[in-house]
Amino acid sequence: MTMHESPTQGSGILHSLGAIVLYRIQLAGHFTLFLAAGFYHIFSWPIQIRKILQQVYFIGAKSLLVIFLTALFTGMVLGLQGYYSLVSFGSEAFLGSAVALTLIRELGPVLTAIMVAARAGSAMTAEIGILRISEQVDALKTMNIHPVRYLFSPRLAAAIISIPLLASVFNVVGIIGGYLTGSKLLGVNPGVYFLRVESSILLSDVTGGLLKSLVFSIVVATVCCYQGYFTHRRKNSFGSKSVGLSTTSAVVQSSVLILITDYILTSILL
């Protein structure tokens, strides 16, 4: 019997594995279609300028404080760590280059996107999720209002506008943070610090960083809105619990996807 059972068990595992793979592919397709619909409706007439501006205020302007604090302390830590690493080689004059390049190429776009996912992305998921479980999304459909256009497109457009701008603010504040610890605290010449910042940054570093921010903004808005929009399809929970779990999934998935995308983009850009 054991001999007969083994192939059956083996094919059972293969069957389950196949089902999981197919489900994941289907999910990826569904996600892509959701993103495509969101993009399409950004430009469908009439353009929802007012709603986009409201979301730019929520995602962008209201995230400024958290971005400022994160950037300042990240820059300050980079200043400290960079100084003590460089001073052992007698190269502390290059602190400005180290801080600026680390921020502009990597930490600025990545940390900005993760902070926006945590602050605004989680709110997007919770808000859309509650609209879904209380039949408000269905109510939109009955009024002939396209829910993706009404709920997702303005948020996607606003994220695309806001996140690269926030990343730029992050970079500037971070460089100032590095200056505070490097020059004010540890004595690196301020003129040398800023000279190195200016001379080491190339246009390709800035455009590369902005390109990353642009991609991350699409990742954050799409993952967070998708999780909220399809919160009712979660298999393991219902109602308010599903909104809570969707919000957690949105932040975790956005953060992980940001880091994976960052690796892929860095490999391409370098």
């Binding site: 039949e135 408000q136 009955t142 002939n144």
Partner: peptide, 20 residues
């Protein structure tokens, strides 16, 4: 379909008003 949908409206059991 758009024209047809515009001719109908639906009053939900739980009202489904937009709470915000």
């Amino acid at each position: 379909t758009r024209v047809f949908r515009n001719k109908m409206s639906y009053m939900f059991q739980g009202c489904a008003l937009f709470d915000s």
